[in-house]
Design a protein around this nucleic acid. Structure first.
Lengths: 114, 114
DNA sequence: CGCATATATCGATGGCCGTCAATATCTAGG
DNA sequence: CCTAGATATTGACGGCCATCGATATATGCG
């Protein structure tokens, strides 16, 4: 019984039972889009690919930076985006930061398109 | 034996056999990212969802516009992005423009994450 | 032909994003 | 403690993108 905006039924496609249901709410669409935005970048796709193909399934910034040919802060920024999206995990060992994939989160990406 | 930029091996991760191969070239990463950008938007995700769930698997702009609650030029813009990405097909019947999904192109999206 | 409706295009605007240089923070070693 | 190296954060800049109003184009109808 939450209060809704006047056009909420139109926006959800529930108006009058005429418009299509379109089984995706705004909230679902926005969270899926946010996850997709995290991977919709060539540099981040390459970072994921490199981490996946690395020895032991992990790579450090010192390897990733020369591999993608960008400045170190830029690589750090992309890794932060991937981390905040839950797609990679960060583990600091000594001076180095190691990153590995989070397979369940990649499943989430795949499950967006049934 | 094609000529490459001086940093190409670093950028492709092929330097000295030390860096990771990262089985994704710049070109592959860019084309995949371009396809993902087309779907990494909440409105476009909802448009795809609505079209998929519509009678006969197709919907016209006149239905989609009230369903997403945005201005008609905005919806037309999003449909153009989806069309240019090959994700939907446009068919004009009379005054109306009908859109349907392109399943093979959606397969392309799924196959980005093996 | 002229009008009404549906859709596409154009131009402008505001906000978000990728990139970098400079700097800060943290850790190991001497 | 102090230095060196690895990584993160900050601030700035340029470009791209979502959105809208106004307008153009196209189609059907009377």
């Amino acid at each position: 019984m939450t209060l809704e905006l006047p056009f909420s039924d139109a926006a959800t496609g529930a108006c009058c039972g005429i418009a299509t249901p379109g089984g995706l709410t705004r909230e679902q669409a926005e969270s899926s889009a946010a996850l997709l935005k995290a991977v919709a970048d060539p540099v981040r796709l390459r970072l994921l690919s490199i981490i996946r193909d690395s020895e032991g399934g992990e790579a450090c910034v010192c390897d990733l930076t020369p591999a993608v040919g960008l400045a170190q802060p830029t690589v750090s920024h992309h890794l932060k985006v991937l981390t905040e999206a839950g797609l990679v995990e960060r583990e600091k060992r000594g001076t180095w930061a190691w990153f590995r994939l989070v397979p369940s989160r990649l499943d989430d990406v795949r499950s967006i398109f049934p």
